[in-house]
Design a protein around this nucleic acid. Sequence first.
DNA 1: CATCTGATG
DNA 2: CATCAGATG
Lengths: 291, 291
Amino acid sequence: MDLILKRNTHLFHGKALEQDQPQSQLKIWHWNINGLGAGVLKGHLLRFLENHQPDILCLNETKTDYQSILEKGIHEKLPLHYEQYWNCSKARRGYSGTGILTRIKPLNVKYDIDVQHHDQEGRVITAEFDKFILISVYVPNSGDGLRRLDYRTQEFDKDFHDYIDKVRIENKKPLILSGDMNVARKEIDIYDAKGKEKSACYTPEERASFESLIGRGYVDVYRHLYPDKQEFTYFSARIRGHELNKGWRIDYFIVPQKDVGIVIDTSVHKSIIGSDHVPIQLQIDLDKLQE
Amino acid sequence: MDLILKRNTHLFHGKALEQDQPQSQLKIWHWNINGLGAGVLKGHLLRFLENHQPDILCLNETKTDYQSILEKGIHEKLPLHYEQYWNCSKARRGYSGTGILTRIKPLNVKYDIDVQHHDQEGRVITAEFDKFILISVYVPNSGDGLRRLDYRTQEFDKDFHDYIDKVRIENKKPLILSGDMNVARKEIDIYDAKGKEKSACYTPEERASFESLIGRGYVDVYRHLYPDKQEFTYFSARIRGHELNKGWRIDYFIVPQKDVGIVIDTSVHKSIIGSDHVPIQLQIDLDKLQE
DNA sequence: CATCTGATG
DNA sequence: CATCAGATG
C-alpha cells in the first residue's frame, strides 16, 4: 500500500526537529478543539502547546478551511518547530476537519481513505513516521434525531475499519489510532447512561460498531490500562458538564493488540480548557518494540 | 383616515402613566439599537432607560420577532412603566424591525403603511397620542452593491412619503417623524463624503429622495436648529468610527413646517454606547401649539 | 452553550 | 466589526 499520496507543501511552515539521535519516548496528544479559529485566536491552543510541548498533536473539529487558515494567518501563529498538516472539509466550509501538528517530520502524510463519498469532510489523516504509523480520525456524529446514524455506522465506520485494517496488515510498523470516535463504549463511559440508548454516541448500533473494531484485534488503551476508572473527554456546555463533571468518554487512543507493548501510559486532561472536549495523551516507547 | 387598526395586546405589559395633569413638555428619543436581544441582554437598553428616563423611545433594528421577545422574556425585562409596541419583520426572522416604548398611553397604534409589499419588514409604527402623532420608521438600507437602491428610493420612499403626507393632511394634530432614514443629507453629514456617491446612504438618488420629502414641507429639525454643526448618529465598527469620530448623520427627527413651533431642542448623544448608532433626542412643548 | 457560516448593515 | 439566524455538536 502506498501511503505517499501528497505532501502538504502550501501550508508547510517552520522546521520540524530532525534529531541525530531520535528519541524513543514520545508524547502524542489528541484534542477535539471545536474550532481552530477560536482555539488559536483565543490563545487556548498556543497556551497548550507552550505548556505541554507535545511531540505530536492530533486535532479534531478544526472547523475551518485552507483559505481561512491562510487569511487569518493561523499557520503563522503556530510555533515554528511544528509541521502542520490539515485536512479540511471539501463539502462545506467551517465543518469537521482534522489536523496534525508534529515536531517529528513524517516520512509521508496521506489524507482520507480512498473512498470518495467519505472523503469530502476532512476526517482522516494518516502520517507515516520512521518507526510507526499514526492515524487521526474524526468519526461522523450521528446527529440530532440520529439522522446520520445509518451513514455513520453502516458506511463510514465499516469502510474506515477496513482502511485501518489494511494499513495495519500491509505495514510492519506499529499503528496508533487517535480520534473523537463519537461513541461512549460502555455505561461507565457516560456520567449517566440511563435513557441514552436513542442519543447519538450511545446507540446500540454505534456501540456495536465500536466493539466490532475492537473485535478485529484492537485495544482501547485507556480502558485496557484502567478497567474501572471513570473519566470523560467531552462535556456538553448545555448542561454545564465540565463544571458538574457530567461528561462522556468519546475520544480514544486505539492500537492493534500486537502493538500494545509500546504503550507506557495514557491520560485525560480535564483541566485543560478551550473546547467542549478535553485533550488526551498517549505516552509510548518505541524501543519497547524489540523487547 | 382611521388610525385605529390594532392595539398591541399580547405584548402589552406594565402600566403607562395616566396623568391627571398631562405634562406639556416631552422628551422623545430615537435609537437604532442594532438588535433588541443584545441591547437588553447586555444591559445597554436598560441602562439607557434608567439614566435618561425618556417619555417615549422609538427603536429601530430590533432584529427580533414576537416569539423571541416572549421566549427570551425581553418584554418582562423592560421597566414596568413603559408600554411596548413592536413591529417585527414578517418576511424574515431577526431582520429589521421597530418598536416604541412609551410612558404615555397612546390612543391608537398602527403598524405599517397599508402597502402590502412594503409591510413585510416591520419598518413603520404610527402612534397617535392625545395632542400629537408620532411615526417611527426604519428606512430600508440600499445595501452592498446598491442592490436595493431602486426599491428603496423608487418604491419604499415614495409610498412612505405619501403615507406621512396623508397622515399630516388628514389630521389636525402635530406630527413627529423619527427614524434611521439611511441617508446622509449633505456633505457635512459625513466625516468624509469624498468618493461616497456610490455608497449606500449617500447616492444622489437617496439624497434626492430625502430632499423631495423636505420639499413637501418638512423640516430636518437638527439641521434647522444647527445649520453648521457636525455630529454623527452612525459609526461603522469596521473603521473604529466611534473612536475616531468618523460617522454619518442618518438618524433624524422630522416635523412638518407647520409644527416646528413645538420644538424646543434636539441633541445627538454620542457617549451612549451599545449600538453602531447613537441615540438622538427631541424636546417638545405641546403648549407652544396655541401660541 | 459552544463553534462555524452567511446575510445584513 | 457588529448584529442576527441556522446548522451542527
